[in-house]
């Protein structure tokens, strides 16, 4: 597909969706307090764009911080359990058990531990996101074909070299798949954190607007969240393309 088509077609889909929404709300006479039309949401956004931007930036920073922690610690943890079977036996069931606890239920506890600043929100975003990273990168690290590992052994490759020259590269596509899921989940985590206790961020906007039955404002925040999700995942797509050049280009950019 052409470059223009890759951008224009999804945009066309979004515009058609919004149009249908607008028309449906007007024809059926839905009360704005139940479901405001897109035009009302746009109007709401235009009344205080800077304020909305400020809230969006805060939520984005929380999301990215939680995501970054999940990415780094998640990949590190997956390396540990894949390289040392004993560690996997000791730690992995515990990890699964901890992950099975609903994070929303732990959130209030984090307020007690970390206060009401950014830390508990980052912690929740991290906790929700890390599982996907660990599962996918562990799968990736184990996806090396058997004869590639045989070759490495026959060439006397050290364990470290096999890890950084073969296993990690092999795992990269899986890691990126996990990171994309983790990014969406980190955003969820950030909102959950803001729901529990916050004076800032899109989660806070939704919660306070809901209290005032300001449905248009709730939807304005939700719309920003939708766009934010698309942008963050899109950014990861770009990073992936640069990180895995052999999948997208015929030859490396520069000789060596």
């Amino acid at each position: 597909m052409s470059r223009a088509g890759r951008i224009l077609l999804p945009l066309l889909g979004a515009v058609l969706f919004l149009l249908a929404w607008e028309v449906a709300v007007r024809i059926l006479g839905v009360r704005p307090i139940m479901l405001p039309p897109p035009s009302a949401i746009l109007h709401e956004l235009s009344t205080a764009p800077l304020w909305f931007a400020e809230q969006a930036v805060y939520t984005t920073l929380i999301t990215l911080a939680g995501f970054a922690m999940a990415a780094v610690l998640g990949v590190a943890f997956s390396i540990l359990i894949v390289e040392w079977a004993v560690l996997e036996r000791i730690l992995f069931p515990l990890f699964v058990a901890l992950n099975s606890v609903p994070k929303v239920a732990v959130a209030p506890l984090f307020i007690i531990w970390f206060g009401t600043g950014s830390e508990p929100k980052i912690a929740i975003a991290f906790l929700i996101a890390v599982f996907a990273v660990v599962i996918d990168s562990a799968l990736g690290l184990r996806s090396v074909p058997a004869d590639t590992l045989d070759l490495a052994r026959a060439l006397h490759g050290s364990r470290f070299k096999v890890l950084v020259r073969i296993k990690l590269y092999c795992a990269l596509p899986h890691i990126f798949a996990g990171l994309k899921v983790a990014m969406s989940l980190a955003l969820v985590g950030a909102i959950v954190g803001e729901f529990v206790s916050s004076g800032r961020g899109l989660g806070y906007v939704i919660l306070t607007a809901q209290g005032q039955f300001d449905t248009a404002r709730v939807f304005a925040a939700i719309a920003i969240l939708g766009v934010l999700g698309v942008v963050l995942i899109g950014a990861l797509d770009v990073v992936e393309r640069y990180a895995l050049p052999w999948r997208h280009r015929v030859a490396p950019g520069s000789g060596h």
Binding site: D150, R153, L172
Partner: peptide
């Protein structure tokens, strides 16, 4: 695996993320 061994499999087992020259040089690197 003994020293002084060269080995080739049915599946070429080339590393997709390295270019051709880096693949050929793998025994030296490893």
């Amino acid at each position: 695996p003994p020293q002084g061994l060269g080995i080739a499999f049915q599946r070429d087992a080339l590393l997709d993320w390295f270019d051709v020259l880096q693949n050929v040089l793998l025994p030296a690197e490893f």
